[in-house]
Design a protein around this nucleic acid. Sequence first.
RNA 1: GCGGGCGUGGCGGAAUGGUAGACGCAUGGCACUUAAAAUGCCCUGGGCAAAUGCCCGUGCCGGUUCGAGUCCGGCCGCCCGCACCA
Length: 858
Amino acid sequence: MSRLSPAEIEPKWQAAWDDAGVFTATRDPAREKYYVLEMFPYPSGRIHMGHVRNYTMGDVVARYKSSCGFSVLHPMGWDAFGMPAENAAMASGGHPKDWTYANIATMRDQMKPLGLSIDWSREFATCDPEYYGQQQALFLDMLEAGLIYRKNAVVNWDPVDMTVLANEQVIDGKGWRSDAPVERRELTQWFFKISDMAGDLLDGLDTLEDWPEKVRLMQANWIGQSRGLQFAFSLDAESVGHDRIEVYTTRPDTLMGASFVGISPDHPLARALEADNPELAAFCTECRRTGTTEEALEKAEKRGFDTGLTVRHPFDTAWELPVYIANFILMDYGTGAIFGCPAHDQRDFDFATKYGLPIPPVFVEKDAEDAQLTEAFVPPKTEPVHYVRGFAGTPVQTGADGVDAAIAFCEENGVGHGVTKYRLRDWGLSRQRYWGCPIPVVHCDTCGVVPEKKENLPVRLPDDVSFDQPGNPLDRHPTWRDVPCPACGAEARRETDTMDTFVDSSWYYARFTAPRAETPTDAEDAAYWMNVDQYIGGIEHAILHLLYSRFFARAMQVTGHLPETAREPFNALFTQGMVTHEIYLTRDEKGRPVYHLPEDVTDGRLADGTEVEIIPSAKMSKSKKNVVDPVSIVEAYGADTARWFVMSDSPPERDVEWTASGAEASYKHLQRVWRLASTIDADMRAATPEDLTPAPARDMPLLRTIHRAIAEVTEGIEGFAFNSSIARLYAFANAIAKSDATLPIRAQAMRVLAQLMSPMTPHLSEEIWHLLTDGAEGLVAQAAWPVADAAMLVEDSVTLPIQINGKRRGEITVPADASREAVEKLVLETDAVRRALPEGTAPKKLIIVPGRIVNVVV
RNA sequence: GCGGGCGUGGCGGAAUGGUAGACGCAUGGCACUUAAAAUGCCCUGGGCAAAUGCCCGUGCCGGUUCGAGUCCGGCCGCCCGCACCA
């Protein structure tokens, strides 16, 4: 019997699919459409197992839906702008464009042998001028619609390299190349007004029923709606032009526990005070050294600086509160100023303790009026609290009701007003880098900031740039900046900032519906194909990419580029786990990790004998050099094996650690299925008339198995439990191998097995299908998905485990339609129950869950 | 620090609140073979036991329930995100 050679059959069937145009997406009004999309890859240079897993999942869905009769759109493209291309250019002197397109070519060549059902005619890269030109058109429309504006924002500035650094380029507060302490610097930048849509983006989450609950929760927390009180503290003496401090609090119910007022180091008052107070200025400067990430701010030691200013409590003019500058207060959130209530907030408690400030409680535990607080008291939700200091003697409740009551009380007494705020900040899109989509505006001395004319799009990146020094090459380009003002025609300067790469990935799904259109989208195509029915990608994108995409769908609707029905672009979302692998690292003289490729490590040592640290289950990433190359797996075992393995070993939402033994095992199993098919085929060809005579009694068990397999495998695919589907397929193959059913029924089972396997192992399935149908029924890829006969799924009898006091002690088999009374009688007659029950006594309780279990309580 | 998630045999994992460990890997045994590979068959959570069986067991502690891997509360550990990484 011939061994199956993936190297022979896989290209053959891929060519057959191409010839038949099976995967070309066509707008067919007669059929329901299905748009399945995996998050497109960054062209890092080689595909890795995470890609294989991601795209195989999408492929399983696409092939399955296609078999179910849908008109399927399953495209692929490249998220091609970004820093690695510039880093490569700086390191090796090439050009980001060449590097990127070469990587794309390599990865496409690596991806195609996987046999994915992708419509490659729709492929594009975000660095294609045809794509980013349309993105510039979107920018102009959104600018005109008031969705984009300019304001100052803080960036990480490397004072040695004289360049802006991304957060990941800041290591322990220092520039990654220069090692110089990073400074904060303000630049005028472009922003999307995403905060205007905060409420709508929050409300929209409720409609996303087919998104993971955790992603919706993360997004809701990220948007961070809060209801609070905004009011002002009056300064005792006007200082540097300020006479009040505007404060926002989500805990107005603790206003009577105020101990101090804190303002951000970036608060206008703090900035004004810096001029006359060198000590204060030094403190603020020190605070600004902390990285710009929220994580760095939150983890930094909480520090304050007493400004010497005081304010009056709004409900008691005799009550004086000190004003501190505190490093943990963000200028971006609320008003950049807070009041501190140490008795009921742990951070404020720590702060008050550190600076010797009073800790007046608002409420205490019952019977604990005199107790000294050793930590902030946050009352349990259910317990009543005892008030020691309510508003004007009136106790208010805690919790949401208390906040509402406190806001109402404050409003009645003329202290501020209730407001709804969001944590979500506007999205800064300006990047001071070359390899991105140029922002299509021109700076004119007389007209100011002027949008480029649409007919001048795309604003192309110049090719003649150098990366021999840090900073943005567009700034250094001799002529690229010089353009006439689109408004007055005078000499003007092009903006040299480019767009955040998140912009590129925020609308690519819409572009796939009409990738060659002369406008960003085509109305008819968008109406037919949108929304994405199933989106698949990593959980690491749970917040930013998905939120930005949701914003963009709305913004594109406002600007007329998407229909109203595409408000939420992704109907269903699946977040896959990552493919992990050990990482190997050594440390440089500063203790920073240096990563090594698996092939450079032998028995835990480098070639020069240096021992390496091994960290298990680390996310596969190019920078960590722990990428397993799928190409070698495909070459050794074929695409079907790689696909089968990545789908079989782990539930798709969970991380999977790559192991070499798993691929080997998958390969063996697929060979076994092939042998089984070949044997059945050979037997059919040599069959005598007796072999073909039906024998219903012999055939019934396998017929039932066929229909159960159809039902269970289908259910697994529908529910994204691919690993369970594959477990069922193993069981099905074993059942066929062991069955004594007649040949025609075994052949029928084998054809169904091939079909059910086809989303995962399309090439092997085609080969088996072709063999068993003599090529008379075309391609599996075009065959209709089998349907389970419900009548065949019903069992005649059922085995019920019998528990005694919750522990399994026996079982009985009863007819599936047995009455409760009949089951009860049989249960009481079993040995296990008789042994447990004293002679003649009845059980205390008898629980019968029909079809499932019996529990006897004695 | 904040937000979110995960934790089950030697390993990957299965299990609408209802027989914990399906299915697969690995280990061991057997068959085939001159031999090996390949292939096929069998066993395999731990403990006690000749055996029908019995006890323990889903990170830890507690709770709800006839019944908890699953629900609730409190911990521990690991992972993801934190707005200029993609």
